[in-house]
């Protein structure tokens, strides 16, 4: 090791250190460089396309099962029965947000666009079953019975109408078991 390279080593170490320290000092002094967001009080922008918790507008949902089929992690479970007006009636629509990976595939395939991502991302819970979001708050059995009753009533009504029409006695629609998905 020659004396020149020895001194050069020291010189390089000093200058490069000084260079770096000048940069950090500039950041240290410049208050405008602070980028931290004080989270709960200050919030960053929530973009329109932000993929937060799933939310299903159950009124427009047509229970087509597309979301359940495409979901790669099976976090959506859906139960529907055929209602009196031949449309599907949701019995339960649960999203397990503990499983959900917020990929957004279900929202994309939803035909009536009833399933959406909300901007919500804050949630804390103490038990695992709280991670399952229920979108139908009524008890499933109650809905099932109600729909069955409606279907039965509709069938009875239809049968009565048919009887009233009287021309040809048609066999009444089988109103026994509601169709299950």
């Amino acid at each position: 090791m020659s004396l020149k390279s020895y001194i050069n080593d020291i010189w390089e170490a000093v200058t490069t250190t000084a260079k770096g320290m000048r940069i950090t000092a500039r950041y240290g002094i410049d208050v405008k460089e602070e980028v931290t967001i004080q989270y709960p009080e200050q919030r960053g922008p929530v973009f329109e396309r932000f993929r937060g918790f799933l939310a299903n507008d159950v009124k427009t949902c047509i229970s087509c099962n597309m979301c359940v089929k495409i979901c790669p992690v099976d976090c959506i479970s859906l139960e529907a029965v055929r209602g009196a007006d031949k449309k599907m009636v949701l019995v339960s629509y649960d999203v397990n947000i503990g499983r959900c990976m917020y990929c957004g595939l279900c929202v994309e395939v939803c035909p009536p666009k009833s399933l959406t991502h909300t901007g919500g991302f804050e949630k804390s819970m103490v038990a695992r079953d709280e991670m399952v979001l229920h979108f139908i708050h009524e008890d499933a059995e109650v809905i099932r019975q109600r729909v069955a009753r409606q279907v039965a009533e509709a069938a009875a009504k239809a049968a009565e109408e048919a009887k009233l029409a009287e021309s040809q006695p048609k066999p009444a629609a089988p109103a026994a078991e509601p169709e299950k998905k």
Partner: peptide
């Protein structure tokens, strides 16, 4: 505090 200032953060507050 100094670390935070240098790194563009706020530090304990």
């Amino acid at each position: 505090k100094i670390a935070a200032d240098i790194q563009g953060r706020i530090g304990p507050n």
